[in-house]
């Protein structure tokens, strides 16, 4: 593992970003965008999850093997969504 040069300041900045994004999620839920509401909510959530993984869980500083393990489940997430949609979209 490399040096965690950034220290406490990075954590505070990331935390601030997470708080702002939470506010965005709540605010957007009051605006009616139809299907887009879901899309925006999921996008914001994904960005937040990535921030947590990259900084709080130190993924940024990890080697390729750890990245491999971290990204593999995303593939299976896509799989379960696509597989289920192949049912619900065509019923």
């Amino acid at each position: 593992m490399k040096e965690h040069d950034s220290g406490i300041r990075t954590y505070i900045v990331v935390w601030g970003a997470l708080v702002v994004l939470t506010v965005v999620t709540v605010a957007v839920s009051y605006v009616h965008l139809g299907m887009l509401n879901v899309v925006v909510a999921l996008l914001v959530a994904s960005v937040k999850a990535s921030l947590v993984a990259l900084f709080f869980m130190h993924l940024r500083y990890e080697n390729r093997l750890v990245w491999g393990f971290a990204l593999t489940p995303l593939f299976f997430l896509v799989l379960i969504v696509v597989g289920t949609l192949s049912d619900t979209l065509f019923r």
Partner: peptide
């Protein structure tokens, strides 16, 4: 990739 084979008869879409 194959979980749907338990659901052929339970109302899943034909495509799936």
């Amino acid at each position: 990739f194959v979980w749907g084979h338990h659901m052929f008869v339970t109302g899943m879409s034909g495509t799936a």
